[in-house]
Nucleic acid binder design. Structure first.
Length: 158
DNA sequence: GCCAACGTTGGC
DNA sequence: GCCAACGTTGGC
């Protein structure tokens, strides 16, 4: 799941413990949340439009998809007049903080890993804010985060 | 700030 | 249903 850290970062999630993931206004992203995200699923928390951009930590799905009430609020930035209480269009899930990586696993690092070939987030023009991640890719990213962390193995050059 | 890659909208 | 115009995302 992507978020601009200026808007909502892994630190914000660590502080809040959990949050509702509102504001998704893309049908494909909504469908992934609605159809594929189950309570307990782990999530890569990705910082987009950031320095550095990349995976900043892990979250966990805390509630399955339910209507996004912010779509009904005319004063909300993500208001959508097409969505109604009776027939909500947009959905959100709840996510809980799981872990903040010692260092962000950057997009550059993700792209440099042959093991991650085919991962959606490293494709050109991959704008979806909610993306499925294959288990092998997920494990690879977590392994990279551990390698990067201060507690992990030191790099020979450092 | 630039711009590629999309998604959406709306005229026809 | 086609497609041009427009808006948004997000890397750089």
């Amino acid at each position: 799941m992507k978020s601009e850290p200026g808007c909502y970062s892994i630190d914000d999630l660590a502080r809040d413990k959990s949050t509702f993931w509102d504001g998704v206004r893309n049908y494909q992203a909504r469908n992934y949340m609605r159809d594929d995200m189950k309570v307990g699923d782990l999530v890569l928390f990705y910082h987009s439009n950031a320095d550095p951009t990349g995976v900043a930590g892990l979250a966990r799905v805390a509630a399955k998809a339910y209507p996004d009430h912010t779509a009904l609020d005319p004063k909300n930035d993500h208001y959508d007049p097409k969505s109604t209480l009776e027939e909500p269009i947009w959905m959100m899930v709840d996510v809980a903080f799981a872990e903040k990586f010692g260092e962000v696993v950057t997009l550059t690092e993700l792209k440099s890993r042959p093991e991650l070939d085919g991962m959606m987030v490293i494709q050109r023009g991959s704008r979806l804010s909610v993306q499925p991640v294959e288990e092998k890719h997920f494990k690879q990213v977590v392994a990279m985060a551990q390698r990067n962390s201060p507690k992990g193995k030191k790099k020979p050059t450092s």
